[in-house]
């Protein structure tokens, strides 16, 4: 079992006001399995993923009955041990390469740094590794990108570079938090396919966060649907058509279809009862 989370709760405390952003999320991820977490903006997808790597700011209180990564209890690890996991055992790809890459450091340096953090070797070896990784993510002109600054390359190339950086230490889990939302539609599918291939060839597990339910269901084994900090429904990707929960159906319904053009898009109706049902 790669990831095993039971009853995860995340509470923010700002100026004495408490706000529970994630309320009892549970899911499991086997090795080499691909899980998508889908839900609307603000439903708590990102902070759930960040909690797993303990990347949340100090004002976030995280509790869980169980939060295991590869059998390791995340909540009781020391910061030093967490650093070995981060990047080393689990890579974390963020949404927008424009902001998630350091603007004043070259791509090559940023990838080499990731490699050096988890491998022993010289600067030269790290640089060679960085070049090799850029080739693996099938970037055009890797030699050029190696010396480029983030603002000098396109969003798609930036996201490839980000993936290369997170693959540097050979992780067994890849977490991708909306890795394509900031990219052009034409590049989105390419990047997802690349992630899919890399996950397959390297035997990694994948935790893919998105708000595009139909898109991710093509790439993942199962889908968890999140709403207001809770998981509404978890189902196998191939069973999406038989989704039981009205919210899931709503998410599927809201998308315009090219095959059957229709007038107004349906509005997603929300029922407060959904949350109570989950709480029981």
């Amino acid at each position: 079992m790669l990831v095993d989370i039971e009853n995860l709760r995340i509470t923010f405390e700002n100026n004495g006001k408490r706000f529970e952003a994630v309320s009892g999320v549970s899911f499991k991820l086997e090795a080499r399995q691909k899980l998508a977490i889908v839900g609307e903006s603000g439903s708590g997808k990102s902070i759930t993923a960040r909690a797993l790597m303990r990347l949340l700011p100090a004002q976030a209180q995280v509790t869980a009955d169980r939060m295991l990564f590869d059998g390791i209890d995340i909540l009781s690890q020391s910061e030093r041990e967490m650093r070995k996991l981060r990047g080393g055992r689990a890579g974390f790809i963020l949404q927008d390469p424009k902001y998630s890459l350091n603007p004043v450091k070259t791509i090559g340096n940023q990838i080499a740094e990731a490699w050096l953090t988890h491998n022993k070797g010289s600067k030269k070896e790290a640089r060679d590794a960085a070049l090799n990784l850029l080739e693996q993510v099938m970037i055009r002109d890797p030699q050029l990108v190696l010396n480029a600054y983030p603002h000098e390359i396109s969003g798609g190339m930036g996201q490839r570079a980000m993936i290369a950086m997170m693959l540097a230490p050979n992780p067994s889990l890849l977490i991708a938090d909306e890795p394509t939302s900031a990219l052009d539609a034409s590049v989105q599918a390419e990047i997802l396919r690349l992630i899919d291939e890399l996950v397959d060839t390297r035997d990694m597990g994948l935790l893919l966060i998105s708000h595009d339910l139909p898109l991710v269901s093509n790439f993942c084994d199962k889908v968890s649907v999140m709403y207001m900090g809770q998981i509404m429904e978890e189902l196998a990707a191939k069973d999406l058509a038989q989704a039981a929960h009205p919210y899931t159906k709503g998410l599927l319904n809201c998308l315009p279809s090219l095959d059957e053009p229709r007038g107004d898009l349906p509005v997603l109706t929300r029922d407060p009862q959904w949350l109570e049902e989950q709480a029981q």
Partner: peptide, 13 residues
């Protein structure tokens, strides 16, 4: 900045 999160996600101290 988001790049701080990615730097930490790399495992830097």
């Amino acid at each position: 900045g988001e790049f701080i999160i990615s730097a930490r996600a790399k495992g830097l101290s």
